[in-house]
Amino acid sequence: MKMTKIYEGSHQWIMFGRDENKPSNIIDSNQYAVRTANKCLLMDPGGSELFAPMMAAILHHAPVEQITDLFASHQDPDVISSLGLWDQALSNAKLHAPALWEGFIRHYLGCESIEYVPIPDNGGTIKLENIELQLIPAHYLHSSANFHVYDPQAKILMSGDVGSALEPAGTPMFVENFDSHIEKMRYFHQRWMPSNHAKRAWIERVRNLDIDILAPQHGRIFKGDDVKHFLDWFDALQVGVAV
């Protein structure tokens, strides 16, 4: 598992991904952690197969008892099917996940010791010691109840499946050439994102945020001007093409 620090200030953002030992028939995903002095939040901690390498990687940054918060942007297995294993490792943690998906996510057998904190449709916040992260609604992108995490201090938006690209193993962490990256994202967004209307609402909301880094759950991270490039490109794209 590769680890990349994408923000370092009063707290840290760490990206985990490109796991070398991942079976090749499972899609690669990015996991993110926010680390404060005594706490650690994991965002979209990943599928069951990823649990052991993820935990081993986090132990470089935080002891297990300080992993106090998990966040699931939506219900997908690549996002949170590891929940049942986290549940047995963490003794005092919360899972922040869409309220709408609660009855479904509990099928991952993960809420014996972990507390499910339902996120209402209009969003909310996660407090981690002295920082406050905003939960930005991203419904129907692609899941019917879907949230992204915005950190106003680090100016990072963790954008779940939005901005994702499915790329071969060993792909670099950052988008280096936006134009050549477009083709890697096009079909994914056209096919997975169901609604132009939902896309419009999200773009309007996100354009109001000050974002340095857009961090998706698959593929590469967007930095600086590429964030704006992405929003413009996505704004113009027709999605929901399967019907």
């Binding site: 081993a56 132990l59 470089h60 935080a62 002891p63 297990v64 049942g84």
Partner: peptide, 29 residues
């Protein structure tokens, strides 16, 4: 079955995280 899977994963973590600063914190779980 579930507990056995977790235990096996935890053992794997111990092996994978040998050089990690907080590896010992997994001993209790």
């Amino acid at each position: 079955y579930r507990k056995t899977i977790a235990y096996n994963k935890f053992e794997l973590i111990a092996e994978l995280s040998k050089d990690a600063a907080h590896a010992h914190s997994m001993e209790e779980p």
